[in-house]
């Protein structure tokens, strides 16, 4: 193996970051997705747009605002300082916050679609079977939307592994803190260490392909299930 200990620590950090971000995203994204799937509020459109922003915004723009906002003079920075947490940029926690925002649509949208696909029927049936709103959510909506959760989790994880721009803007390049694989590849290339860059890049390529294969596999399975139901 041509991987150095710095490469391995970048891989470990990346996995730690992606796992943390995926867990946070599932906890945060599920209520947002549920609300978006069910609401008739006028706020639905604006909230959907905000959630989807990272899809179209250059990572550098997002990273720039996060850097400013979480910096010593930014509103978020003021709050974190007042709480005695210091400032978030160039820390692992800052990277988690940035990645959560950046990957939000990749988790919210599949879950929201899955919730919407349930339709009112099963939930109304559950209500007539004396299930209260919380029980309807836990025992009917979540299990029926499980593929959406799986797709969202896989996409959120993979997208966090693959991000670069936001990390560079707010994370910098601190070993074991913020130096993730994508940044490490960048460093190798800068230092003309192409062979090591190849190894890491190859790993990311295979990983990304495998993830997409899994997601599309899941979707095809769902379509087949849908057809069976329709007959």
């Amino acid at each position: 193996m041509e991987l150095s200990s710095a490469d391995w620590s970048a891989i470990a950090l990346t996995l730690r970051l992606a796992t943390t971000v995926t867990v946070v995203l599932l906890l945060l994204g599920t209520p947002i997705a549920w609300w978006l799937a069910r609401t008739r509020s006028r706020l639905k459109g604006p909230i959907e747009a905000i959630v989807a922003l990272p899809l179209v915004l250059p990572p550098s723009v997002l990273g720039f605002y996060l850097l400013v906002g979480m910096g010593p003079n930014g509103p978020v920075g003021q709050v974190t300082q007042a709480l005695g947490l210091g400032t978030l940029p160039f820390t692992f926690a800052g990277l988690v916050v940035g990645s959560v925002i950046y990957s939000l649509p990749f988790v919210v949208q599949p879950i929201q679609n899955a919730f919407q696909a349930i339709g009112p029927g099963p939930l109304e049936a559950a209500a007539t079977l004396r299930a209260n709103p919380w029980q309807r959510f836990v025992w009917v909506a979540v299990p029926m939307a499980r593929r959406g959760f799986l797709t969202g989790a896989v996409l959120g994880f993979a997208h966090t592994v693959g991000e670069f721009g936001v990390v560079l803007m707010i994370g910098g390049n601190i070993p074991n803190q913020t130096r993730v694989v994508s940044v490490q590849i960048y460093d190798h290339v800068e230092a003309l260490q192409y062979s090591q860059a190849h190894w890491l890049a190859g790993i990311l390529l295979v990983f990304s392909f495998a993830v997409l294969l899994l997601v599309y596999g899941l979707q095809h399975q769902r379509q087949r299930a849908g057809l069976n139901l329709g007959v």
Partner: peptide, 9 residues
């Protein structure tokens, strides 16, 4: 219900 509305899962 008109459609049975069984829980598919």
């Amino acid at each position: 219900f008109q459609e049975a509305n069984l829980f598919p899962h």
